[in-house]
Write a protein that binds this DNA or RNA. Structure first.
Lengths: 182, 182
DNA sequence: AGCCATTCAGTTGTGCACAACTTAATTGTG
DNA sequence: CACAATTAAGTTGTGCACAACTGAATGGCT
């Protein structure tokens, strides 16, 4: 089956029966309504993430990169050579994800991996010449994506700020354990 | 390696060198800066999606559901029995994703699948009693997630609206082909 | 009726995310 | 120094996302 999205106005993205428009606390809303709302916010984030991913997929195909590989390359273009550990911190990815991904980038001739001499546990990831050169082509990517979103720079920054705030809150909650009952 | 996120203020989530604070058009910004910005918005969305996912993972574990399975159940609780096709439209997922997922839900005893009598191509997905009963437990989920985000209802709705707008724009761009050069 | 295009679900193969685990190197402490 | 704890990277297994494909059922068209 191929992707035949129904328009966003039907299906998932329609509005809630907006009973509670005021900046109400969550406690004013019934568990039933919250389940509806949850469906909607879940879907929105999930769908946005996948839509983004899918636009990038198209653009990145001509660079021979997947979206996560592009993220790795972006970090390398910015920071140059660095250990897998650091890469994982920047990208919030663990070695279980990065190891095979880096292996594929290495097979593609874009990066090189070498055990660090000082600390034999650490593996440093370098750009090859081909990997460094790929940046030229990548320079055209963001403008095309931005054009696809139709957002201006201010909106993009604003959205980013909100998402970061969300991520921070969620990470904090995850660390101290999600409330069991509330 | 386990997830040891660096705080968002270091690492990925720091601000841009905000040269262009005005609601500037994208054309005013250099390709170099856009690549930086791209790194940031990519990361933000990717990270938010994964942070969200990971909080849900914790909460949903006690229901025995993964996040995508929860999304499917949300649709079923709302709409009752419906064909795989519709499910895919609501969730924007194709059969390649849904078929195995539904098979797992069926194995877990939460849904039943039956070929439609009128149209033998179609498979209708039903809730089992266990699947319907699970909704009781699920009612507590959204409040706990919302608490974890620290967002109030207004903010959640606002973010959702922005994400939906983004998704719409991205889908539209994807349909008519992403701009090749711009 | 006969045939072709379409539709629906499913399968296969690739890649990512993550938990749980392994192995090897390093660090800290008695 | 010895040895336990920690750290870095990698491996394994599960599940999701998606492209490309298969196969069966359906609908339209002549």
């Amino acid at each position: 089956m191929t992707k035949t999205p129904i328009s966003a106005s039907e299906g998932v993205l329609q509005g809630l029966p907006d009973e509670a428009k005021a900046p109400a606390g969550l406690s004013d809303v019934s568990a039933e309504d919250l389940l509806l709302l949850d469906r909607q916010i879940c879907f929105s984030l999930h769908a946005a993430s996948r839509a983004f991913n899918s636009v990038y997929r198209v653009v990145l195909k001509e660079l021979g990169l997947t979206y996560p590989q592009y993220l790795v390359m972006l970090v390398l273009w910015e920071h140059g050579e660095l250990p897998v550990k650091r890469l994982g911190e920047y990208l919030r990815l663990d070695s279980g994800t990065l190891s095979p991904l880096l292996k594929r980038l290495e097979a593609a001739g874009l990066v090189r991996r070498e055990r660090s001499a000082e600390d034999e546990r650490s593996v440093r990831v370098h750009l090859t010449d081909a990997g460094a050169d790929l940046r030229e082509q990548a320079l055209t990517v963001p403008r095309r994506i931005a054009a696809a979103t139709g957002f201006d720079l201010g909106e993009i920054r604003d959205l980013r700020a909100r998402l970061d705030r969300l991520t921070l809150a969620l990470d904090a909650a995850a660390l101290e354990g999600v409330p069991v009952c509330e």
